[in-house]
Design a protein around this nucleic acid. Structure first.
Lengths: 102, 102
DNA sequence: GCCATACGCAACCTCCTTGTTGCTCGTCAG
DNA sequence: CTGACGAGCAACAAGGAGGTTGCGTATGGC
């Protein structure tokens, strides 16, 4: 659930594509998510569990299907984290410039 | 240089901390970056190379020092990517709602 | 009730990552 | 010129990540 864990979860091309699909198509079952990939259902299921453990997805059993859906608040939190770094960078550069001119 | 590679680079707690430090303190040498960490200089250097290969940092030799600095444009690009996913998610939910009510 | 479906669990293999250490090389200061 | 400092390179060990296969289990349609 840490910030690094969120980025690590997004840092695999397969998982990033799964997140993009969930964002574009809405909630999907493991079986549906496996369609269009070159890997097995178990591999996809493990990727989805990683994303859920990172807080990026939430899951629900619907009959014999296991449906995963996006958790947009986690994505928003990661976005804000990157925003903070960029903002600090600007002030750090200003301080560096003042130091060099001094 | 892919998007997944950027997130993977940020997805390690040590590297995320290095990026945060560069954002807060400005450009730093490998030796300076090693201070305050529990790992060796070589390990830090490798982490910095990973971040540079992902496009998140740029580096420069200054005498016998190797200085790394943030590349805020890459961070902004990653931020926009997350923004896109969230935006698509909203419309996907609308379509899902319309489908269920149908 | 019966069978296909969608899934979970566990074992296993392979590669990549992350850390280490040892050695060498360029650079700055005295 | 010489020694200390900051880095680069390479080899190595240990752990984790990502993939597969085989098998067992609950659910839904006929």
């Amino acid at each position: 659930m840490s910030t690094a864990e969120v980025f690590a979860a997004l840092g695999d091309p397969v998982r990033l594509r799964l997140v993009e699909r969930l964002g574009a198509e809405g909630p999907l079952s493991i079986h549906r998510m496996t369609e269009g990939t070159a890997i097995s259902r178990q591999a996809v299921a493990r990727h989805l569990n990683v994303l859920r453990d990172a807080g990026l997805l939430h899951d629900e059993r619907r009959g014999r299907e296991h449906v995963f859906a996006l958790e947009p608040r986690r994505i928003a939190a990661a976005r804000r984290h990157l925003e903070t770094i960029s903002a600090q960078w600007d002030t750090a550069l200003d301080r560096l410039r003042a130091y060099v001119e001094d």
